[in-house]
Simulated assay, not measured.
Amino acid sequence: MSYYSLKNILKKNAVYNVIFGERSNGKTYATLKHGLEQYFKDGSQLAYIRRWKEDITGKRGQAVFSALVENNEIEKLSDGKFTGIHYYTGKFFLCNYDNGKPIYSDSDV
């Protein structure tokens, strides 16, 4: 469940939005969820930018969407087509899992 609301900033209809706020109040969760909503709506892309490369590699990259996966948001937003997001070679792939192993194709990026 997201605590941060994008309602006011999205009203600005800006090309880019920058959000500053307290730690752990749901900013990332809300923006990632919004990005996925837009992707499933019209194919829009989301850019996830971090200050340091190490913040989005390996296990840290895999954990970016973990809260959305745990809350079944991926499954809800994709109407059951996907259940997770897998991070591999610098890309995020929509996926399903078979015995804990992600199943995806290059078109699911």
Rank of each mutant, 00 (worst) to 15 (best):
E54T: 10
N71H: 13
E54N: 09
S44Y: 10
L36A: 09
N72A: 03
G43Y: 05
A67P: 03
L46C: 04
D55I: 00
I74N: 05
T31N: 04
Q45D: 01
G43E: 10
S78Q: 08
A47L: 14
E75S: 05
Y39R: 10
Q62I: 02
N71T: 15
G43W: 03
Q38L: 08
E37H: 00
I49P: 06
I74Q: 04
G61P: 11
L36F: 14
V64C: 08
A47V: 10
E70T: 08
W52G: 00
A47S: 11
F65C: 03
T31S: 15
A63Y: 07
S78L: 02
T31I: 12
G61K: 08
Y39N: 12
N71A: 15
G35Y: 08
K76R: 10
I49E: 10
V69Q: 14
L77W: 06
D42G: 12
I74L: 06
I56T: 12
G61I: 14
L32A: 10
Y39P: 08
N71Y: 06
I74E: 06
L32T: 14
D55N: 13
I49R: 02
K33A: 07
Y48R: 01
Y48G: 02
L46S: 12
E70L: 12
Y39Q: 07
Q62C: 01
E54P: 00
K76W: 01
V64N: 02
G35V: 04
R60P: 00
Q62W: 01
R51G: 00
N72F: 01
D55L: 02
G35E: 04
G43D: 07
G58M: 03
A47C: 07
F65H: 11
A47G: 10
S66H: 13
E75Y: 09
A67W: 05
Q38V: 00
R50E: 06
Q38N: 05
V69C: 13
N72Q: 07
L68R: 07
S44M: 11
S78R: 01
K59P: 03
R60G: 01
I56F: 07
H34A: 06
Q62H: 01
G58A: 04
E37N: 00
K59L: 12
T57V: 13
E54F: 08
K33Y: 02
K76A: 09
Q45E: 04
I74W: 10
G61V: 13
R51L: 07
I49S: 13
S44T: 13
Y48C: 05
I49W: 10
Q38H: 02
Q62L: 01
A67Y: 12
S78W: 05
A63P: 00
Y39C: 04
K33N: 11
Y48D: 03
G35Q: 08
A67V: 12
F65M: 03
L36M: 15
K59N: 12
W52K: 11
Y48S: 02
D55M: 05
Q62R: 09
Y39G: 05
F40R: 03
A63T: 11
F65A: 07
S78P: 04
T57R: 07
Q45L: 06
K76E: 14
G35C: 08
I49V: 15
F40S: 03
W52A: 10
K41E: 15
E37Y: 00
S66D: 15
R60D: 08
F65E: 02
S44K: 13
W52Y: 14
L32S: 08
A67E: 15
R50T: 15
H34Y: 15
N72K: 06
T31L: 05
G35A: 10
H34M: 01
E73D: 15
K41M: 05
L36E: 13
E73K: 02
